[in-house]
Amino acid sequence: MVMGSSTIEKTMLTSFLIGGFWDRWIANGIPETTVYELRQRVNSLEDWIRILQKHADVYEQRAVCNLNQHLVEEAENFYRLAGMHYNLIQWMFPETGDQKRGWYQRCKDMHEQADRLVKDEIMNVTIQVEGNNCYGRIRVSERLKGCVIIINPIDSSKEELVKYEGYFAGMGFVTVSFDGPGQGETYAFNQYKATRQRWDLFVDAVIDFTALQFPGLHLYLFGTCLGGAWTIQGSSHPKVCRTVSVSPVIDGDTRVPDYFQERLLSIIDDSKSGLLLRMESFDYVCPILLVHGRKDTIVQGDYIYDLYTKLPMDKRLIQYVDEGHGCNYKIDAILKAAGDWYLSDTR
């Protein structure tokens, strides 16, 4: 029996019944044609793997074909697409093991092929938290206007959000993205689970590491969902200049789907402590841009407004009337607004 099989079944059922399940994956690169096939033909984990692997193979072949024709940008995009499909396979396994690690490695392989095709320098790096390796990516663009640290949602990986790093790199920012405790490569290969204390240590470690690597650049934070909450936590760090937080999930009236709650039990070491931050006071945080979708069913609007009122005066709130949690279909506009917010830093 596959570890976490009941959670896998519940996740697949949710993906079949609820269209909003797919918003994040579509926004981050999974084509709607793949989504349609998964929703129509998946009856088992084997179906899920078979369909995604089939599409990944096609995209890898297209990448090779385009590379042979010296169409480098197109080849990069197809390698990224193949990687996203492998990422969605490994993501389905809530608990780490040989299968999750194997599919994750295929995801990494595709992104490494794509990394070789970009002009920017891309480095794989590690930091240590409590003696455990946490794995990250750094992308250095040709123009250096600042450095954006991307804090990913708890059930995401750095590979899922490569679109973000590409956008910020195009604006002239260095990007730094790590898998923290319970996330991505750090969990899959090291079995290092999450707690609130470990995430507190992790966020500080990422900021300190980045400040040492790029001492002449202003540091900015960007995060969504639970990652958005931890960017607010990181905003109190003296080396952070500005922050963007999208749909931050902080302790309060949150409504998390059942399948997601079960997935969290696999990656959290102390389920009683959870991962939600308790924002009781803001003695100091840097300027923060909050982004909220008015149709968010996980983070309620009243809660966001209460959070906003507690922030210092240098702040901004962007709301999208038709967006849900994560504002996935406005991500291009959000990334642009984030870049403008960072560049408005006059220090």
Results as ranks from 00 to 15, higher is better:
residue 1 M to Y: 08
residue 3 M to S: 13
residue 7 T to E: 13
residue 8 I to N: 05
residue 14 T to F: 10
residue 19 G to R: 12
residue 26 I to D: 04
residue 34 T to Y: 03
residue 36 Y to K: 15
residue 43 N to H: 11
residue 47 D to N: 15
residue 49 I to C: 03
residue 51 I to M: 02
residue 58 V to S: 07
residue 61 Q to V: 00
residue 62 R to V: 04
residue 62 R to W: 09
residue 64 V to A: 14
residue 68 N to G: 15
residue 71 L to M: 12
residue 73 E to W: 02
residue 89 I to F: 00
residue 93 F to G: 01
residue 104 Y to W: 10
residue 104 Y to L: 11
residue 111 H to I: 06
residue 117 L to P: 03
residue 118 V to K: 09
residue 135 Y to G: 07
residue 139 R to V: 08
residue 140 V to R: 14
residue 144 L to G: 00
residue 153 P to I: 07
residue 161 L to N: 07
residue 163 K to S: 07
residue 170 G to P: 05
residue 179 D to K: 12
residue 187 Y to S: 05
residue 197 Q to S: 12
residue 200 D to G: 12
residue 204 D to E: 11
residue 205 A to E: 12
residue 206 V to Y: 08
residue 209 F to K: 01
residue 216 G to E: 14
residue 222 F to A: 08
residue 223 G to Q: 05
residue 223 G to A: 05
residue 227 G to W: 01
residue 228 G to T: 03
residue 231 T to G: 10
residue 233 Q to G: 03
residue 235 S to N: 09
residue 240 V to H: 12
residue 240 V to G: 12
residue 245 S to M: 02
residue 246 V to G: 01
residue 254 T to S: 08
residue 255 R to E: 09
residue 257 P to D: 09
residue 270 D to S: 11
residue 274 G to M: 11
residue 280 E to H: 15
residue 281 S to G: 04
residue 282 F to C: 10
residue 287 P to R: 06
residue 287 P to A: 02
residue 292 H to C: 05
residue 293 G to K: 02
residue 304 I to T: 10
residue 309 T to L: 00
residue 311 L to I: 07
residue 319 Q to C: 13
residue 320 Y to I: 04
residue 321 V to P: 00
residue 323 E to M: 06
residue 331 I to V: 10
residue 331 I to H: 03
residue 334 I to W: 08
residue 337 A to P: 01
residue 340 D to K: 09
residue 341 W to M: 08
residue 346 T to V: 12
residue 346 T to A: 14
residue 347 R to F: 13
